[in-house]
Design a protein around this nucleic acid. Sequence first.
RNA 1: GCGCCCAUAGUUCAAUGGACAGAACGUUAGGUUCCGGACCUAGAGGCUAGAGGUUCGAGUCCUCUUGGGCGCACCA
Length: 556
Amino acid sequence: MLREQIRDDIAKEVDRIVGKWDGRVEVMRTSDAKFGDYTTNVALRLTPFAQGKPLEETKVFKISGSYQSSLEFARVLADRLKDQPYVEKLEVAGPGFINFFIKSEVWQKEVEEVLKKGSKFGSNTTGKGKKARVEFVSANPTGPLHFGNARGGPIGDALASVLEFYGYKVIREYYHNDVGGQVRKLGEAIINVSKGQRLEDQEYKGEYVQDLASNISKPGLKVNAKTIGDKAVDILLEEILKDCGAMGIKFDEIFPESKFIESGKTEEAIKKLDKKGLIKDQEGATWFAPNDEFFKDRETVVKKSDGSYTYFANDIAYHDLKFKDGPDLVIDVFGANHHGHVPRLQAVIGALDHDVSKFHVILYQWVRFKRGGELMAMSKRSGTFVTAREVLDEVGKDALRFFILMYDPNSDIDFDLALAIKKSKDNPVYYVQYAHARICSILSKSVHEPGLKIPSKPGSGKANWQLLTTNYELELIKQITRLPELVSDIGASFAVHRLTGYATDLADSLHRFYENCRVIGEKEDLMRARIGLVMATKTALANTLKLLGITAPEKM
RNA sequence: GCGCCCAUAGUUCAAUGGACAGAACGUUAGGUUCCGGACCUAGAGGCUAGAGGUUCGAGUCCUCUUGGGCGCACCA
């Protein structure tokens, strides 16, 4: 990757000038073409030169004794880098940025690289041989999957895909909370309703309770709340997984909470903690009590005084299992209402001698929904929620996934279904998909050009890429080549929502290219090069959409 | 009371501490007898909720204020 090449070259020169520097050299794309293609702020980083501070306090001065400012240091550094083969010119600008203008021919050659890599373009091998686990959705099975829980679906799924592109072997997993009072309560509600009680008087008031009542609770049959609840929860899990499937999500493994109790894994995990002296008995119950300042007043019950295990206890066993086969990365995607749970999990993972630094939690904020301009919290108990299925039926998988993945998980979503349906045609996903369809149209037409062989396989196309000289073409190449950089960044930051922005940028560049550069009908050399460029764009776009789990249509 | 998250164009969202805060939609004015007009070009639109602070440099970090969401169970 060119960016890494530049980074290495800068780092080498920096080391030569100031001796070993342990800071990270940052090379990034510029915000404006007038700043070139890449920029580095390393000179600013290396000379924390503050006005009013004596020169002697600056790092570079200490080392070399000669540079007085970031600007001056940048000039010296730039002078040593200006002869790199990919450099067209270097500029030192502002307070001390070094701006890299890359030779056109370097960009032009990239097209061939993209075609060669094909469906692998954008991927890297950083995580090669490493294992990652991503748990997401894990919705409470006491009701249908609502749009709030559903948010974790595309986030977790797309993240898993990116990690695969990053080289990891990834397991997508789902935790099924089929245990506890909630299941019995759901069973009670179902039984009550089937006996003719009013829905709105029940603990769970959603209409699905009515449906479940007519499905499983036959009058006259001997029933208890637990068995009915169990049955209901199984049905609901099936429905939830079906909804996930409709969103394009498939799990590799489902872990029912009950299995951890039945198999003795929960007991085992608690014993492990007990051996370390982190368990204590108090008021008839068993508590997780680490000797930690943080946990002083927030010790947690793992075994209730009635002898049953808490959710947390089973989660301890689950996380112990997650770390058992030595994964390199364990990610939980949770709704933000579980944030209080996170420090406890971290404490437990550490206590079980697992490497906490490999454990990451992505919290997404709750989706609130608006009805008639009024905000309501989604709640299964009160029965006020929009199901994932409803939204899916109205806007479809692609728009739904794009919509969710546009957001930083940390931001709240206020969702108005009526507005979303009305505005679904405005969803940027169509802007992106249209670009792909347009490309396919050009490519299928180009097949009919007499005397022009269109390479059917990536890599088999050769052309004189140096004919791609307009700003539209170069701009497009520069967008295409951002994908591997982005995948690399997301592999470390987990910020999957950046992919949607990238997809829009790339589509934008394609549309502008299309308006200004003809492909079919140009002289053969140029046509061939432009077809290659269009194919490379298709590759980048299709790979991006695949990571997002969104279809790349040939026609719209 | 304690803790976590959020506040950015009319709207929906972006912006690893970097340069003049960007897109899309909407809006105003234009565009291709030619590869798909679900497109393109140009314009208007912002004290980044408010006040301090740190920094060469703050939407981003720190403190406080305001307004919202969420969590602090022998629930899951």
